[in-house]
Structures are given as structure tokens and as C-alpha cells.
Design a protein around this nucleic acid. Structure first.
Lengths: 164, 164
DNA sequence: TATTGTTATACTCTATAACTATA
DNA sequence: TATAGTTATAGAGTATAACAATA
């Protein structure tokens, strides 16, 4: 759940005929960090173009996936799993609750916390979202063959797990 | 230049002994988008741990690299190269100018724009930053061998170039 | 004492629209 | 007309600190 822009925006105010000089990018293209940022930007834009009409962001999809797969988990656990502070999760769940996708049920054994679960509407949304996300993955992976795609995921996973 | 948090923060308020139940992540780990986000988060944290004492973010490093490699370019060109609006570049350059790293020179043939360049201090910073960034890349690439690392960069480049 | 959810507050990054000066 | 820089404004996304309720 991060940054990025709330919508698919065009890069310029209007089509321009201006020809820019070719820039020298120096070592930037050889840096993992730089290409990571570019790829994530592309990923975000494609996700929004595929799933944006369902009014959902990649971060919200992640949250709803975790709730669907772990019904009854609480906000703190969810925040930990998503890598964000529990105070940050409040507004995230507020929004999904207001949209009617997520329910804050009272937890059976702990009156401090909520047991989160998807509403009927949330489950319906996920049902529509899953094929969209698969299409999105297909778009992203288009320039990679099967082997390359699983390698990419594996390499990213290793990089992510490496830095604690 | 994105999101992220301004500093290296710990994920929890204090060391906790709480044992969370193992969560089910469903399809998330198989999604390029999900691993991309995780990897970029890890990248950001490592960058800040290596270069953060120089008070510079990955985005600022990118901007300064482009200015160094293309002295005299203007804010709009820079914004286009970085994929951000020119209005967004104003504050970015403001900060780097206030820090004394970047100079807004008057452009020779166009009184509307600035010719950006690094100051002496900016060049000195880049000299210190380059080895730090190389160390950072080494950290990131640690779980990958040479071949895998160039594959990762290549795959990311393809994915980024694929979505226009 | 420790944890959960919450609020108040503050940052960063980003965009759009409108304005001024200049091309 | 079009472009460069700027400002005002807005909205995500994020965190820290402090608090009440509960464990």
C-alpha cells in the first residue's frame, strides 16, 4: 500500500510535440533500485487500468486477500502482515468498512480487538477482482516467458527476504 | 522518488514477545506486483541505512545523478525523465538547492527556464554517495549470483518498458 | 505491564488547475 | 499558442506519541 497516485494520470498535461534531447541516465539503468521503482510504477498503472473501475488499489486488494484467507484476524495482525503500523490500518479498514466490503466483528475472546471479515459484498468484489488481477499479472508478464516470470518472482522474493 | 517513509523506522514500537499465528497469504506471494512492492520496500530501507546518514533519498540520488550527467537540463526535462510532474519537481529542487547541492543557473537561450547543475558541494556529495550506492547494490544483490542479478535487472527493465 | 484500537499531528510524494513570464 | 516555473490546493500513504479499554 504505497504512494503512487490515486488514479491513472497522464504524464503530461496535453499531447506535446516538443522533442526532448536524449538524456544520459548514467548508472541509473544498472541499479536494481532504479529498475525496481520503474517496474513498480508500471505495475501500479496497469493494476489501476485493469482493476481501477472496481475502485480498488493494489494495497486494498492485498488487505482484502489477507482478510479472506484469514478470517477473524485483527487490525494489528493485519498491519504487521502488510508491513504498516496498526495506526495506519485504522483508516484503511475505515475505508473498506465504509465501502461495505469489510466487517468489524467483535472478537470472541478479546474485547480489545475486532475480528475482521469480508462482507457478502466484499466476497463478491473479490470474485470479480481475481480474474482482473490474473489479467493484470498476464499483462505484466507479457514480455517474459514462463521460466523468466517465475525467476523474476523468485529473485524478488529473495531480495525482499534478504533485507530484514 | 516515491512514497516510503522519511527515515528508517522500526516496524514495531518495541520488541514484542507476542507470537502471531502463521498467516495464509493466499496467492499474494505468486504475484509479481506483491513481490515488487516487498522488494522495493527492502531496497528503500537498505538504501537509507547505507546512504541515509548523507541525508539523501533514492529519489534525490536519481535527480542528482541526472543533473550530473546532463548539466544544464531544466526542471521540466528532469521531471519528465523522472516520471513526475514539473510542479512536483519544484519542491524537489527547492530542497536540493536549500541544501546547497544543486544550483539554478539562468539558462543561456531561454529566460523561462533554469539550467540545473550540481554545486561543488553537490559534486562532493555524489563522490561520497557513489561508493555507498555500490555497497547498497551489493547488499541487495547478495542473495543473487552475477547472472541472476543481471537477469533481475533485465526482467525489471522489460516489465517497466512494457507498460507504457 | 502489555496489547488493541484510536486520535491528533505531521511528513513525504504526488497531481491538477490556474497564474506569470517568456518563446 | 505553447512552454517553463510557480503557487494553491488536495489527497494518498505513512509514521510517532499519547490515551482509554482491556488483557
Amino acid at each position: 500500500m504505497s504512494t503512487r497516485n490515486g488514479d491513472i494520470k497522464k504524464r503530461r498535461r496535453r499531447a506535446t510535440s516538443k522533442v526532448r534531447r536524449k538524456l544520459n541516465y548514467d548508472i541509473l539503468p544498472e541499479l536494481v533500485g532504479y529498475q525496481l521503482r520503474r517496474a513498480q510504477l508500471a505495475m501500479f498503472q496497469d493494476f489501476m487500468s485493469v482493476a481501477g473501475e472496481l475502485k480498488i488499489t493494489p494495497g486494498q486488494f492485498g488487505v482484502m486477500t489477507l482478510i479472506a484467507a484469514n478470517p477473524g484476524l485483527n487490525q494489528s495482525e493485519l498491519g504487521e502482515a502488510m508491513g504498516v503500523d496498526r495506526s495506519t490500518m485504522v483508516a484503511v479498514i475505515d475505508k473498506l468498512e465504509t465501502s461495505g466490503f469489510v466487517l468489524r466483528k467483535t472478537a470472541p475472546n478479546d474485547r480489545r480487538s475486532y475480528a475482521l471479515q469480508l462482507s457478502k459484498s466484499g466476497e463478491a468484489l473479490m470474485a470479480r477482482l481475481r480474474p482482473a488481477v490474473l489479467q493484470h499479472e498476464k499483462n505484466l508478464a507479457a514480455p517474459l516467458n514462463e521460466t523468466e516470470q517465475s525467476q523474476l518472482i523468485e529473485y524478488l522474493r529473495r531480495v525482499a527476504d534478504n533485507i530484514p
